[in-house]
Design a protein around this nucleic acid. Structure first.
Lengths: 160, 160, 160, 160
DNA sequence: TTTT
DNA sequence: TTTT
C-alpha cells in the first residue's frame, strides 16, 4: 500500500516488436531496447556497458508499437518494473519486465521515410504522446505480463 | 508536436492547501512545497538553496489534498510544468505551476495522529495512490490555471 | 534540508544555444525547448498546448551544447527547477529555469550530417550521457528526512 | 551508444542492508525494497501487487545505508537498471539490480528516535541528498555488480 | 522480506 | 512559507 515504481528509458529496439492478440481483444507487444553507459575504467580506457530491457506494452500502446516501431527505432519509454517467474525443465526462471505506460517515438519522420521507404502518416508519425487511445478494456490475461492501463498520462487534460 | 514534460518532487508544504470549488463541480487545490539543495561553495562553506514550487491539483487530487495535506506535510509529487501569465496593474506577471498527476503522502500515520490528535481513517490515510477518484470531467476553466485531469495514471487499469 | 527536485524533458530547441564564457573559466549555455501536449477538448476538437522551458547548462554541458545543439535539435534533458527574479524598470520579474545535469541528443547522426554538412565526431555525437565533466567538489553528504506513507503510481496491474 | 536508464522508487526495506567492504576499500550495500500497487479487479475486489526490487549501493551511499537504513525504512531511490547472471549448479540465473545513485530517507527523525531510541546526529540526519561522498573512482568491480560513478546530481551547479 |  |  505504498510506493513509487517508475522507470524511464531512452534506447533503441533490438528487434521488431512481437505482437500477440489475445482472446479478450487486448493485444500485447513485447520487445527489448538497449541503453548504453560509457565510463572510463581505472586504466583510463573508455568502456561501454549496454543493458537490454524487456518492454511490455498493452492495448493501445501495443497497437502503436506494432504499427510504428521496428528494429532500431529509438524510443522514450516510461513504465514500471514488474518481476515474474516461470518453470521450465524443472528450473525456475526469473524475468524482469518494464510495463510501459507512455511511449514517444524519437526517430525523425525523415528517418522513417528513408528507412522503410514508406509513407508515414503525419498524424501518426508525429504523435507526440503515443498513448493508448483505445480504452483499457480489461483484457485476457497472459502468463507473461500483466495488462497495463497504460498511457494515461497527459492524455486527459484540458488546458482551461 | 512531441515531448516529455515531467516533474518529480519530494518536499514539504509551506502552508495548508487552498482549495476552490468551481462551478462545474471540479475543485482545484494550490499550495507550494519546498525542496532544498545543499552544496559546498568555493570557500568550503556549506550552503543550502531552497526552491519553492507552486503545485496545482485538480479534481480528485484536490479533494485528497484538502483532506489530508497541511502545512508541513511531506509529499511526493509527479506532474508537469505549465507556464501562465496575467496582467496586473499594467504589468504582465509570469507564473510557473507544476500540475500534479500523482501524489504520495510521505508522512507516517503516527505522525499525523500525533500532530492533529485526530483519527485518520485507514482507508483514506492509506490511500496508496492519491489519484483523482472522481472522473476527470472536463471542468470549468479558471483564469489562472488549466484543468488537468490529473492523476490519471494507473487509475484505469484492470488487471485482466 | 531534504527533497527531490527533478525535471525530465524531451523537446526541441527553439533557437541556437546562447553561450557565455565567464571570467572564472566556466561557461553557460541557455536556450529554450518546447514540449507539446495534445488533448481533445469538450467539443471533441484536438488541441495542442505547447510549453517553452528555459534551459541552463553549465561547464561541460554548455560546451557540448555549443558544439552540437542548434535550433530544432531534439534533446532529452534531466535537471532541476530553479527560480530567480530580477528588477527591471522598477518591476520585479520572475524567471523559472531548468538547470540541466544530463543531456542526450536525440537526432540521428544521419540527420545531423545532412542538416549541417559537417562531420560529427562519433565520440561526441554519440556521447550517451553528456554530463558535465568539470565538477564542483562533491561534498560530504548525509541523509535523512521525514515521515511517510503513501502509495501511488502504477497501482494498477496484475502480473499474469 | 546512447540512452537513458533511470529508475525512481519509493518503498520500504524488507530487511536490514547487507554491507560488504571490498579489498580496494570500496563498500557495497544490498537490500530489497517493496513497492505496492493497488487496483480493483474485475470482481470489484481490491487487490495489491507488491514488487520487490534489489537495490545496490556503492561507496558513500553504502556507508550511509549501513548507518541509517534498516528493515522497514522508507526511502526514495534514484538509480539505473543493471542485469547480471551467474552460474549455479549448472544453471544460469538472471538477476536484475537497481544501482542507486541518489537516496533520500523518508522516515521522520521522530520516528527514527521512537523506533530505535538512539540519537540521530543532526548533520547526518539532515543530509538532504545522500549521495556518495567518495569520488567516483572507477573501483574494483565485483562479480555481481558494476561500479557506479554514482552521486553525480547537483555536483555541478552554481547557484547563479 | 516491507509498509498501510 | 516547509523541513532537517
Amino acid at each position: 500500500m505504498a510506493g513509487v515504481n517508475k522507470v524511464i528509458l531512452v534506447g533503441n529496439l533490438g528487434q521488431d516488436p512481437e505482437v500477440r492478440h489475445l482472446e479478450g481483444g487486448a493485444s500485447v507487444a513485447t520487445f527489448s531496447i538497449a541503453t548504453s553507459d560509457s565510463y572510463t575504467d581505472r586504466d583510463g580506457n573508455r568502456q561501454t556497458q549496454t543493458e537490454w530491457h524487456n518492454i511490455v506494452m498493452w492495448r493501445g500502446l501495443a497497437t502503436i508499437a506494432e504499427k510504428y516501431l521496428k528494429k532500431g527505432s529509438k524510443v522514450y519509454i516510461e513504465g514500471k518494473l514488474q518481476y515474474r517467474s516461470y518453470e521450465k525443465d524443472g528450473v525456475t526462471r526469473y524475468i524482469t519486465d518494464i510495463v510501459a505506460r507512455d511511449m514517444q517515438m524519437l526517430d525523425s519522420r525523415q528517418d522513417g521515410q528513408s528507412n522503410n521507404g514508406g509513407y508515414v502518416p503525419p498524424t501518426a508519425a508525429n504523435a507526440p504522446a503515443a498513448q493508448p487511445t483505445s480504452t483499457p478494456t480489461p483484457a485476457a490475461a497472459t502468463p507473461q505480463a500483466t495488462p497495463d492501463l497504460s498511457g494515461a498520462e497527459g492524455k486527459d487534460d484540458l488546458p482551461f
